[in-house]
Design a protein around this nucleic acid. Structure first.
Length: 96
DNA sequence: CTTATGACTATGA
DNA sequence: TTCATAGCCATAA
């Protein structure tokens, strides 16, 4: 279940981000919520959930490990470029 | 066991 | 472009 999600999330290299849809696609399902639930169940203790963003590049408002703004800062620190209040998926989208 | 809610995404207005 | 609704699956009650 979530193990697959954790594995994929940990597989994301520094400076890159993956969308829920991307992970879900790898899992072989269409449900994006299960990924979000997986991260929520695990929070940010073992998996860098801050690298997981919405399909449009935005973050999870109010449910991040400490705030979407914090998440944004963390991603920036890893080298992820931001497009306004969203991540520049065109540049930092994790491809396989 | 059934109902309701949720770190989502795609489609329609 | 932004807001609302439907669909998919798992967890909580």
């Amino acid at each position: 279940m979530f193990a697959e999600v954790y594995q994929i999330v940990q597989r994301i290299p520094i400076g890159k981000v993956a969308t829920y849809g991307q992970i879900v696609r790898i899992l072989g399902t269409r449900d994006s919520r299960r990924v979000g639930h997986a991260l929520h169940a695990n929070k940010d203790r073992k998996v860098p959930c801050h690298r997981v963003v919405f399909a449009d590049g935005s973050l999870a408002p109010g449910y991040a490990f400490g705030g979407a703004k914090i998440q944004r800062l963390k991603l920036e620190s890893e080298g992820v470029k931001f497009k306004g209040n969203k991540v520049n998926l065109e540049r930092c989208r994790w491809s396989r």
